[in-house]
Amino acid sequence: MPIETSRRGGRSVQDWIMLICGVLLFVAPWAMGFSSDAMAARAAWVGGIVIAAMAMAALVQFAEWEDWVALIAGVLMIVAPWALGFAALQEAVWPFVALGLITALASLSEIWMLHSPEHAAR
């Protein structure tokens, strides 16, 4: 059975971390006070939904592609304030950069574990 389709049944702490990051990113516009900026708020809502959905999917039935999508979403969240033009909103920049970085690192960690010889043998 290939590693990328093996069932882990919610044992991955990285998936739980990504789920929390997705939820936090989704509520960030209200919690951090930038919900009046349409671009920043929409980016947070869409990014949060994508990250949380990938984490929930991985918790239910793991597939490696979910981690790759979460990695891309995390990197996009890091660059979103500058790419989408709301970098002047410091209350928006910090959640995007911090939660995007945590998401990217968690997904990279999981991808590395899948391809690491000592973890693949388990």
Rank of each mutant, 00 (worst) to 15 (best):
A120H: 07
A83M: 14
S107C: 04
S107H: 02
M39S: 12
L108Q: 07
A106Q: 01
W16N: 04
E4M: 10
R11K: 13
V27L: 14
L114E: 09
Q61I: 06
I102R: 02
I111C: 08
A106K: 01
V75Q: 04
V13N: 11
S109V: 00
L105T: 03
L99E: 02
M56I: 14
A41R: 11
D67R: 13
I78M: 14
G47S: 05
F96K: 00
L99D: 01
F34D: 00
V60E: 09
G74I: 08
I111W: 04
A44Q: 05
G22Y: 11
A80F: 08
A28K: 04
V46I: 15
F96C: 00
A52Y: 06
M32E: 08
S12T: 05
V75T: 10
I111F: 03
Q90F: 06
R42K: 12
S6T: 13
A63D: 13
L19S: 03
T103Y: 03
F34K: 00
W30I: 06
F96Q: 00
P29V: 08
A121G: 01
I20R: 10
R122V: 06
L105G: 03
A52C: 06
A80D: 06
A38H: 07
V50Q: 12
F26Q: 10
A83W: 14
M113K: 13
S35N: 05
F96T: 00
F26R: 05
D67Y: 11
S6E: 15
V79C: 09
